[in-house]
């Protein structure tokens, strides 16, 4: 299945909690409801915390993909919950 149309991208490899989430929030403010943000975060603490915070803010994670270097690629639909 092809990816949805991506409206914004953010690479947060090497960015620790909670800065990664703050940056994600700011990026999400730039796009409209229903648009898609592509996010790359590290495994470990970021994967433990960021997806949960995104959900708590009312956005929907529509895809999770493990990249060859061990980091994760998430597609987030703004205000999708």
């Amino acid at each position: 299945m092809p990816d949805e149309k991506i409206d914004a991208s953010l690479n947060l490899k090497g960015v620790a909690c909670p800065i990664n989430f703050v940056k994600t929030k700011l990026k999400l403010e730039e796009i409209a409801d229903g648009q898609i943000l592509e996010l790359v975060i590290d495994d470990g603490e970021p994967m433990q915390n960021v997806p949960r915070s995104i959900k708590e803010e009312g956005h929907k994670i529509i895809k999770v993909e493990k990249l060859p270097d061990g980091s994760f690629r998430l597609l987030i639909k703004k205000g999708g919950i």
């Binding site: 433990q48 997806p51 994670i61």
Partner: peptide
């Protein structure tokens, strides 16, 4: 099967 729960579980 997104695996987020297994990451979230400490």
């Amino acid at each position: 099967g997104c695996r987020i729960c297994s990451k979230a579980c400490r």
